[in-house]
């Protein structure tokens, strides 16, 4: 039963890193997954050099959505926006280190979706950008 909810994920769920609103944020965005009610708000403080000096999040929802947001803030903090462009669906799933069923993948990707919307105004689901561009 517990192979999915490894210690690392539960630790990030119960003790989320970089949690709380960020005063003076230059970018922020709020998004939800209407299917399950997961919510994430991402706050970025981007310096003039394009570097993410600080990143915070708030949210509520399942362990997968909240742990992935916490992991994501750790991954992007201190990186430039250019460098963050390389962070994709696979990065997030690798950081979680588990195999998710299709129904749960969106829980994991909500944080990256919200981050990309905050940074660049991209509101599509990670991994489905090509499909959206085609539309």
């Amino acid at each position: 039963m517990d192979d999915l909810y490894r210690e690392n994920i539960l630790d990030h769920y119960k003790n989320p890193r970089n949690y709380g609103e960020l005063e003076g944020a230059t970018h922020h965005y709020h998004d939800t997954n209407p299917l399950c009610g997961d919510e994430i708000t991402m706050f970025l403080l981007v310096g003039e050099d394009g570097r993410i000096d600080d990143v915070h999040f708030t949210g509520r929802g399942c362990a997968i959505s909240q742990a992935s947001a916490s992991l994501l803030t750790e991954r992007v903090k201190g990186k430039t926006l250019d460098e963050v462009k390389a962070v994709d669906k696979d990065t997030v799933l690798e950081d979680l280190g588990i195999t998710l069923s299709p129904a749960r993948v969106k829980c994991a990707l909500l944080s990256l979706k919200t981050l990309k919307a905050a940074a660049w105004g991209l509101t599509g689901w990670p991994g489905e950008e090509a499909k959206q561009a085609a539309e």
């Binding site: 039963m1 192979d3 999915l4 909810y5 299917l35 399950c36 009610g37 997961d38 929802g61 399942c62 362990a63 997968i64 069923s101 749960r104 829980c107």
Partner: peptide, 22 residues
């Protein structure tokens, strides 16, 4: 402390199908 989606996933691992959501 356990979101319904996590609960439904954990129950699924035990072979139990329940609905989680609104």
């Amino acid at each position: 402390g356990i979101h319904p989606h996590d609960m439904a996933t954990l129950l699924d691992r035990e072979g139990i199908a329940v609905r989680a959501g609104h």
